[in-house]
Amino acid sequence: MSDFLTVFFLLTGSGLILIGAIGAVRMPDLILRMHATTKAGALGVGLMTVATAVYFLDIGVTVRALSILAFVVLTAPIAAHVIGRAAYFTGAPLWERTLKDELGQNLDRRGHYLRSGLEEQDRLPNRDRPAE
């Protein structure tokens, strides 16, 4: 049973990492590539740590496996956010089929300031506020 689970987790985990790598090659722009590498990479490594924990069946190994799992799953979205933000600020192009971009118009690149687009609405007196 333990053997079977180890094999299952190893193969699904590495398969997911391979899917992430294929995505990194095939996807048309930076942020779409990050969709693939962040999610597939994090869960793939997570499944492989579960495989090692199941294989060794030892409390020390399990603790280390869980810490790797927690660390990878918690930091993957943060790394994606940091890189995506930096790329966006330096003007990385989006795919030409991208339908809309509500971020670009609110961004002040030079001052590193990002507006919410809600400031105007606040400044209006209450009676002038457009009906919801």
């Binding site: 942020i31 979205p77 995506g84 609110n106 919410s116 687009g117």
Partner: peptide, 10 residues
């Protein structure tokens, strides 16, 4: 994928 939060957190 969340990219960024505006400076006033809104």
């Amino acid at each position: 994928l969340s990219i960024d939060v505006s400076n006033d957190n809104r």
